[in-house]
Design a binder for these strands. Structure first.
Lengths: 133, 133, 133, 133
DNA sequence: GTGGTCTAGACCACG
DNA sequence: GTGGTCTAGACCACC
């Protein structure tokens, strides 16, 4: 598994970032329905994190129905997980962008300036990704 | 006063959102340098929030040098505050949009889909505002 | 822990004095980068002060970048804190002495008398410390 | 009267600084026992300050016995005021310097560094004053 | 256990 | 009236 990028610098809770990484793995096809996810202990050791924290991530994912425990085996990616991961992601992204634009307008930022930021960030994101690819 | 939209839906602490709103008010020209900002007690009553929470917002703004207390009189918008508030607002909006795009890419959302969301939300925001105007 | 001398006699707010003492502890080597500082609740109990007051001190120190919270663990001395605390201590002491001398001169106290006080107090301080050692 | 240097930049209450200026005027001989001090209204107008604030200063000075009201005339410098102003000043200065040195030692600042600050500030104070004279 | 947020209410200094 | 400090105690998220 290529789960990484944790450590520090962000402000979101560790367990939430772990859960996100696992969702990404599902949405991107690295983990497929029926696959066994890495065990709590193994993942905790790999990420240098308290096992409780990893357990919390899996607990949340299970309560969302994206993963399910298999007796004696571990934790499995659930059946309909792929599409649901993508769907929930899409909505989250859309909501954030809408909210950012709303606040910009409410605070009377110049429309041209808002649009410039949108174009600029979109361009930057493509540049850096193309660079990697 | 134009301060509102608090209450629910967000996850940031109340005092931080109040501070943001005050920054926006300065950036947008609703509060100008030398003006007295709404008093702690008044704003607390208006927002249905504890005065300490409002005081905390003002305290943070003071430590950034954007507002300054005037003994016995109230809290004043500082001299160079306008440009700094605009700068801060710009960075805040930009950071949010960047983060949203980053996460979209990390979860391997299709670039075309991300771009569609950006265009779509920007168009919607302009429609609704034009509708009002 | 070496934190004490609070209680009475001074006029600065309690939280500011606590913050100063913590800076001094770092400057003097009693707390080193990476160390966990005493917990809010523990320090509050020890100083017979409300936990909120201690928390405020730590909050201010964090906004200066001298301490940083570690999720679920406590509050840590930041990396570059030692030199910055020494710097801050130096300026604090220097400012106080400068202010005392300024006021003495403004009130037209005889220069020879001011100088006598400075020498006298410095001598006394050394005597009492040597006596202890 | 040459009372000035108020305005802003300091943190002590305005009324206390006014009271200090008046004490300095007495200690330095500008106001002598039996002289009438400037009236509350006149001084308030001159300093662009609320009359209540000036009144508070005089009230404090009266409760220290340094000034005394004269029916129908105004406020007078009291008899023994000169020596008492000098005396109280001397003690205040001495106490501040002692406290500054104490704290420096308690925080394990190098004695040589403390001494350097004392010499340095004393030298600076003399330079700037000689420059004026 | 840890820190962080929020509420409620008291008291003080200042103008 | 204003802001600032402090206390008391509740609740939350995180490890």
């Amino acid at each position: 598994m290529i789960l990484l990028d944790l450590n520090s610098g962000e402000e979101r809770p560790i367990y939430a970032r772990i859960a996100d990484q696992l969702k990404f793995a599902v949405a991107g096809g690295a983990l497929r329905p029926g696959d066994l996810a890495p065990s709590v202990r193994e993942l905790a050791k790999q990420l240098l994190v308290n096992p409780n924290t990893v357990a919390r991530a899996y607990r949340d994912l299970q309560s969302e129905g994206l993963f399910e425990p298999v007796r004696g085996m571990g934790i499995q990616v659930a059946e309909g997980a792929v599409e649901r991961c993508r769907q929930s992601r899409r909505e989250m992204i859309r909501a954030r962008i809408r909210r950012a634009i709303e606040e910009a307008r409410e605070s009377r930022m110049e429309p041209s300036e808002i649009e410039a930021i949108l174009r600029d960030e979109w361009a930057k994101a493509n540049q850096s990704t193309n660079g990697k690819a």
